[in-house]
């Protein structure tokens, strides 16, 4: 039997928003396929403990929550294909999604491609990733037991990373381009109290020092331009995220940050195409707001399909 290639709905990305869209679509009797390049969960899968998703009073690790969401959608008939989307034609009828596992077609598309950590853009950053350069303290922190690590960034996630690493590493050096953190105030006291966190204010990481692995970083004082080299075993980059919207550029309206322009209805600039989760322009990016988007998108898609368009 030939594999099914055409669906009422295809969801791009298997994070919480995508899994919820698949769940609601399957329960509404739509044929739905989730295209996911590696595994369910998206960014959530790399989160050690999720303590703000209601219903899990003891917290839950992100990978396990992702597996549960995927299985729940599949229980009602949603399908998952482990394939990476290479190009999209969202204006076509049906809409076409070309992947490394062939072409798929759908009457509606939910973009749930999420976001990824923003890089610093330094020379050799990509090849040193996993060899001292990291973007996820919860995932990679354990490797730096007793060692010296640098954290770059000034927001809440950088502060949380520095705190987490201070419990594992011997010494943490927090580098921030401004004279104080943008992080929520609740982080200030624990950061000061940790005892093994040093601060390098008004500084940026200007270069990576390395052999086969990272050995240190070059810091530049943004006021004076003076450069200093410091030894470290790890560099954790926590300077925000960027949406995964490369494929949609030119087809869907994006905002200045590259996020897909869509309001609470999740409707994008093209009929039958919806944006859910971190990929959508929105004030708060959380698992709970992503899952809410997923439900809304299916409601809108049902209206669209009923309209016979």
């Amino acid at each position: 039997m030939e594999e099914k290639r055409s669906f009422d709905m295809i969801v791009v990305g298997g994070g919480p928003g995508g899994c919820t869209a698949a769940l609601y679509a399957a329960r509404a009797g739509l044929s739905v396929l989730v295209l996911e390049k590696l595994s369910a969960g998206g960014q959530m899968a790399l989160t050690e403990a999720i303590d703000n998703y209601p219903g899990y009073d003891e917290g839950i690790d992100g990978f396990t929550l992702a597996e549960k969401m995927q299985r729940q959608a599949e229980r009602f008939g949603a399908k998952t294909e482990y394939a990476e989307v290479l190009s999209l034609d969202l204006a076509a009828n049906p809409k076409r999604l070309s992947t490394d596992a062939g072409d798929f077609f759908a009457r509606t598309v939910v973009i749930a491609a999420g976001a990824q950590p923003r890089e610093l853009g330094l020379a050799h950053e990509a090849e040193l990733t996993g060899k001292g350069v990291a973007y996820c303290a919860a995932c990679d922190g354990m490797r730096y037991k007793g060692k010296t690590v640098v954290v770059v960034g000034g927001g809440s996630s950088a502060a949380a990373d520095a705190l987490l690493l201070s419990r594992v590493a011997g010494k943490v050096i927090l580098v921030h381009r401004r004279g104080k953190l943008r992080a929520e105030k609740i982080y200030n006291e624990p950061l000061m109290r940790a005892g093994n966190i040093e601060f390098r204010w008004n500084s940026v990481v200007a270069g990576l020092l390395h052999g086969a692995k990272l050995t240190g970083v070059r810091l530049r004082d943004v006021a004076t331009g003076a450069e200093t080299d410091i030894d470290c075993d790890g560099l954790f980059i926590s300077v925000g995220r960027k949406p995964s919207t490369r494929l949609e550029r030119g087809q869907l309206e994006l905002d200045s940050g590259g996020y897909i322009a869509a309001d609470e209805t999740t409707k994008t600039s093209l009929p039958g195409v919806y944006a859910v989760g971190d990929v959508r322009a929105k004030p708060l990016r959380q698992v709970v707001t992503a899952v809410a988007d997923g439900a809304v998108a299916v409601h809108m898609a049902e209206e669209f399909l009923a309209g016979g368009a």
């Binding site: 590696l38 595994s39 369910a40 969960g41 899968a45 790399l46 989160t47 990978f63 482990y82 995932c139």
Partner: peptide, 9 residues
């Protein structure tokens, strides 16, 4: 986490 993410594929 990266290892667990690889497992299904």
């Amino acid at each position: 986490g990266y290892c667990r993410r690889l497992a299904p594929a």
